[in-house]
Design a protein around this nucleic acid. Structure first.
Lengths: 216, 216, 216, 216
DNA sequence: CGGTAATCGAGACGGTACGTCATGTCTTACA
DNA sequence: TGTAAGACATGACGTACCGTCTCGATTACCG
């Protein structure tokens, strides 16, 4: 399989028709239509959740035919994933270096928590998650687009802390990442308690210090 | 949270006590139909996920009319929640006392992880979760039935540890619970890495000890 | 196979779900919907031909759901056939006895020609005919409903003429019927010349007398 | 009727002379493509009827682009008509002179009946007929190509009979033609009875002799 | 013991969305 | 200019569920 050019019009979700390197024959894909579809989807997604994102509704709102959507995305979840990714990538930033692991983590996690709790992203993520459980291909793409980028940022922060000597070099990094993001996603999705800045701080502090009474 | 009156329109789950003391006029509810519905739903749920649980399919498989289902449950998610709860309650146990917080947690979490990773429960939970994002009433019921029972078990374990003097009395218990269950649900739902016993152990150990290098 | 009761709500085209003699369980068929569908179809048919009779259009115009149409008719041609039949049956009359074969035939054929040439029935018949070429079941039904009734009327007229001694008793009746209706349908469908009363008269006279010069 | 200029937009059939005397600018029309289109259409037509002749299917099968088809034919019916005409013209013969009207007619009609009843031409003709009801331009072309040629052959036969003195000079020729071809088309299209040689003979004999008992 | 009343099965109903297909138009690059 | 390739808007297709409804048949109680 050829790897799609990053940023090329064919690099939509990886679920789309794979790009070929040869000369582009025939009428080229309409960039206008692509953008209209993603914009309409994002709007529907935030207004009323994935349940409101029907192919018909997107087509109507984007002024585009259903066939055009199906040509490039296999399911409405794929469109939604693409729309969500596009929105989030614009807001992505490089994790800043505050000089301490605690500071870096708070700097990274608080804005993220702020975003996902203000807009109704929880129901979007939950819906995508549901699809990911059943559809292997979609699941991989979901993780690549939604889960991994943030995880990579946090990984960078942890590695910086190792370099500083703040944490042990043999730290189980993957588990540590789950320890950080797990509780945040838990509150986001289960909704049993608020995902506020106080909680983010508590999680970071408790993960760093541990629960058990220090010996002695 | 108020407990819905059995038989009341707010009793969305159908788990009401079959016979109440008040005057029962007319033909009584068919217990046979109730069980057939839950059984058929559970089967469909595990075989093919919530997507396969349509009211028509359940009615057909249970040998019951659609009207009967709608009379007792408002949505298919409510039926599914009921079916899942019924299955899980049978397997519920009182958390045993191993003498240490670490031992109690492992004793509690490992069997749970074993269950949810063997059968395809992840997609069921994800689907219920999705509905919970949008439907407030359902969300409350979902948490009461699925999330809280396990959480209560773990809370009991933590309180025992406080009594033992193993952890500080001012431990932020709710955050601690999220620190334990968050990572487990994270792997269960996001699927980026396995939810095996090694991971459960790592989480417990890391939460207890903390990440940061001990001073010195 | 049970024979549907003539005039019963299940006797639609014979293409519909066959009627059973047992007790009617469940909600009975909506007579209102059935009539609305046939009325809407007939209107579309005469206004713009079978091409305009889409299931969507009929459903919209009749204020009925598509599923209801599909429940009772397999194709739009079946609905159209039913609608056309319903319209025509109302206008059906018993062929009157004028005392002569020529008179009877003219009495029978002229009004028919008048009807089919004034309203745009030709395109409807052509379209049904086309479907009948490919679909055996539909073809049989088409002949039973559209072709046979008129043919039976003419057959009656011919038999009366045999009794009168006007034509030979060993007349090949089926060929004679084709000799009468064939030319009329030919002009109706091929459209190379008008189907007017003069033509009807010419056909009848020529069929009765023959083309060849009488010997001698 | 005016004959469309080859290559003009009114030349809906594509049977135009490939090269005209006037200046041919740009790339000349591909004769290869034209033949491939007609061949593919004829194949689809006989295999599965006009319903299977979609522009996409023809383009795919002929190895041609849809635009090329649309450039030379306005509708799929026009292509089908062209394909059918091409096939039939090859088999066209001059009506032979057997010495009698009866013989000439049988000589002309029997082979025709044989052809149309063996291959599934009926559904093709019915479909073209249907289009002809709605589309005036197509209707005229259909008659010119399909109906008139055979009619002209029969007319020639009748005129020969007039010269022979076999039939009256004031015979209404057009009605006579309908009397011959009408019944044949009737059986071909309505399908209520077979279009075999016996029927052809019966029709000819009955038309020549008439139905009515000869006086005396 | 007959009347009252809620439940049950069956299944038709008006809707909405699905994913596919064909039509006829267009845009591009190549011949 | 013609052609192959193929994207596009449009709109119908036939299917599947949704949640509601209308039946007749059951099955309790209560008077």
């Amino acid at each position: 399989m050829t790897v799609p050019e990053p940023g090329s019009p064919l690099d939509t979700t990886g679920l789309a028709v794979p790009a070929s390197a040869q000369a582009a024959r025939g009428r080229p894909r309409s960039e206008k239509a692509r953008k209209a579809i993603l914009k309409a989807t994002a709007a529907l997604l935030l207004e009323r959740g994935l349940a409101a994102v029907s192919m018909d509704a997107v087509a109507l709102r984007a002024g585009v035919s259903k066939a055009t959507i199906y040509r490039w995305w296999p399911t409405k979840e794929a469109v939604a994933l693409d729309a969500l990714y596009t929105r989030w990538e614009e807001a992505a930033r490089h994790p800043s270096d505050t000089g301490s692991l605690r500071g870096d983590l708070l700097e990274l996690l608080r804005p993220w928590a702020g975003i996902v709790r203000t807009a109704p992203y929880a129901r979007v993520i939950a819906a995508l998650l549901t699809r990911a459980q059943t559809d292997q291909v979609f699941g991989a793409e979901y993780r690549r687009r939604i889960v991994q980028p943030r995880r990579d940022q946090a990984r960078e922060v942890f590695l910086r802390a190792v370099e500083r000597g703040e944490v042990a070099a043999d730290l189980n990094l993957e588990v540590a990442l789950d320890l950080i993001y797990g509780p945040l996603y838990h509150r986001l999705l289960q909704g049993h308690a608020p995902l506020d800045d106080a909680f983010v701080t508590d999680v970071v502090d408790m993960v760093l210090a541990g629960i058990r009474l220090q010996a002695g």
